[in-house]
Design a protein around this nucleic acid. Structure first.
Lengths: 172, 172
DNA sequence: CCCAACTCTCACGCCTACGTGAAGGTCTTG
DNA sequence: CAAGACCTTCACGTAGGCGTGAGAGTTGGG
């Protein structure tokens, strides 16, 4: 409680704006720039429990770790590319957290029965996620097939048309 | 204008509720039941131009065709499974509409150059869509791989544990 | 020590995607 | 032709996902 040895002993970028990211903890604006999210969004994700609260300076400034950035980038992918809602993403993230905890506890446990029970749990989580993924995947693959077929047809049509044009206006 | 021959000459289900769907036009509640969407949502999609306005009875009741249902189911897939926003879905739908129009016009056109220009257009639309799909697909496939690997590891771990348990408590 | 730049926490605003009545018209059955 | 079930159009409400200041504090260079 009394010695905040690692929360404040750095510069974390100059006030004016020209200093390169000197250390491994980043302030909110830098994170925003790197991830493409806004500062508001970063605070919001923390607020709704989507991102673990980062460490702070003594003054209360957020200091994000590299790990936080990884998480944010993952969140962004899940949101933009995959179209999950933040609630769904939180589910996924919490599942991963639980997995981590189980993994740690696993290492301190030697009883095979207990281990087996834990394995059941994490496997269930994984299967659940796998199902969500597979559904989406199937839908997207079908769309991809259809589009691919269409593009192929277009390719053939294009070839036909070029022949016609060449035949019709052969000389110059 | 004067003869509404096909807008009203049917019963479209009794008021009390037991009559089977007698004809090919459906009233809003039946469509809601079949698609899993709510009546409000159906009206809303029409309101924002996501679904073409269906035909109406003389009294003003909406009558949905089988085609409308197809469209709605497609919309639902794009929304739920693929996570597109309604705006994006509208884009996609409009692209398909344009494609239809071009296709019809195409059949009445014989000039190869004109046809080629149209082909360029629809192919561009298709490629655009294909890109969106491919991005999402790549992300999902990566997730699937990771999960698959994990499940495999779990399977091996499970086998190990079972062996341990059997060894430790062999008889009964 | 001072100032510019940055950050903090409210707190209200906005857009999307609907939910939920209210007030009234339509359709079908008895 | 009356009743009840279903439909219509407003129109306001809500939840999620942030945007946008306001007012106050923090940080770090000069």
């Amino acid at each position: 409680m009394s010695n905040g040895s690692q929360t404040q002993d750095r510069t974390a970028g100059g006030g004016a704006g020209g200093v390169p990211p000197s250390e491994e903890y980043l302030r909110i604006e830098q994170v925003a720039a790197q991830t493409g999210l806004t500062k508001r969004t970063l605070r919001y994700y923390e607020e709704i429990g989507l991102l673990a609260p980062p460490t702070r300076t003594e003054g209360g400034y957020r200091l994000y770790s590299r790990d936080d950035i990884q998480h944010l980038e993952r969140i962004k992918r899940l949101r933009d590319l995959l179209g999950f809602s933040l609630a769904q993403i939180r589910e996924i993230a919490q599942a991963e957290e639980e997995r981590e905890h189980v993994r740690e506890a696993w290492l301190r446990e030697t009883n095979p029965q207990t281990r087996l029970a834990w394995l059941d749990r994490v496997e269930e989580l994984a299967r659940h996620q796998m199902q969500m993924i597979s559904e989406k995947l199937a839908g997207l693959q079908e769309m991809e097939r259809n589009l691919g077929d269409r593009l192929e047809r277009y390719g053939r049509l294009r070839a036909d048309l070029k022949r016609q044009i060449d035949e019709q206006a052969p000389g110059k």
